[in-house]
Design a protein around this nucleic acid. Structure first.
Lengths: 103, 103
DNA sequence: CATCTTCGTAACTCATGACTTACCGTAAGT
DNA sequence: ACTTACGGTAAGTCATGAGTTACGAAGATG
C-alpha cells in the first residue's frame, strides 16, 4: 500500500516483466506465465506481492483471474519521486550557486 | 545507470534512509553513518550501490567525500514511472469504457 | 616523521526471498 | 457425477545481499 512496498515490489526483474506484460491491458495468470521463463506458481507469488503493494488489481471472471495495473499504486511512487527530484534540483542549484560565489 | 538499477537501489530501507538524509544537501560519509543504526562500512557499501545506480554523486574534499543526490538519476526513474502511469490510465479508462458498453 | 582522521575494501556470517514440485480448491464442460 | 482447466498455497532448496569486524590507503596535523 505504501510507496516503500511499491519500490520493493518493482525491484525484482520478474515482477517488472509481469508489469510490462500488463501495460497493454489486463491478462489472466496463465497467459502471463506463458510469456515468462518461470513457473506459474512463481508468477502467482509475484502477483500477490504486486497486488499487496497496490500496483495491481485483480478481477475474477469464472475460474480465470484478470490482473491489471493499478494507476493509484503507480501514482504513489510517482509522487514520491517527484518530491525527491524537487529536493535534488534545489540542492544542485544551491551548490552551483555557492560554487560561483567562491570565485 | 539504468532505471532498473535505480529501483533496485531504492528498494533497500537503509539506502532510502541515506537518500532521505541527503535531501537537504551534500554530506560526508561519517555524518551520514552517525544518523543511521548501521556501521560506517555498511554505509560505504550502500553509497557505492547508490552511486553506481546513478542516484548519487561524489565529490572529494581532502580526506572527506561529499555525497549528494543526482537529479539525473532520479529523473530517469521518474520518466519510467510516468510512462507506466500513462499506460495504466489508458487501460483503466478503456476497461471502464468496455464495461459501460456491456450494459 | 609520526599520528590521527576519514573512508574504502576484504572476508565472513546469516537472514531473506525467488524458485521449484506437489497438492488442493473451485468453476466450467461432458 | 467425472473430468478438465485455472490458479492459489505449502514445504523445501539455494543464491543473493545486508551486515559485521579487521585491515589498508590517503590526506590533514602536530
Amino acid at each position: 500500500m505504501s510507496y516503500e512496498d511499491a519500490i520493493a515490489a518493482l525491484a525484482d526483474p520478474s515482477r517488472r516483466a509481469i508489469v510490462e506484460s500488463l501495460r497493454t491491458g489486463a491478462r489472466p495468470v496463465g497467459e502471463i506465465a506463458d510469456g515468462l521463463p518461470i513457473s506459474r506458481p512463481a508468477v502467482s507469488q509475484h502477483l500477490r506481492v504486486l497486488t499487496d503493494a497496490g500496483l495491481l488489481t485483480c478481477a475474477s471472471s469464472g475460474t480465470k483471474r484478470l490482473y491489471a495495473i493499478s494507476p493509484e499504486g503507480v501514482d504513489a511512487l510517482r509522487r514520491y519521486l517527484d518530491s525527491l527530484w524537487g529536493d535534488a534540483l534545489a540542492c544542485f542549484s544551491e551548490a552551483a550557486q555557492s560554487k560561483k560565489e567562491q570565485l
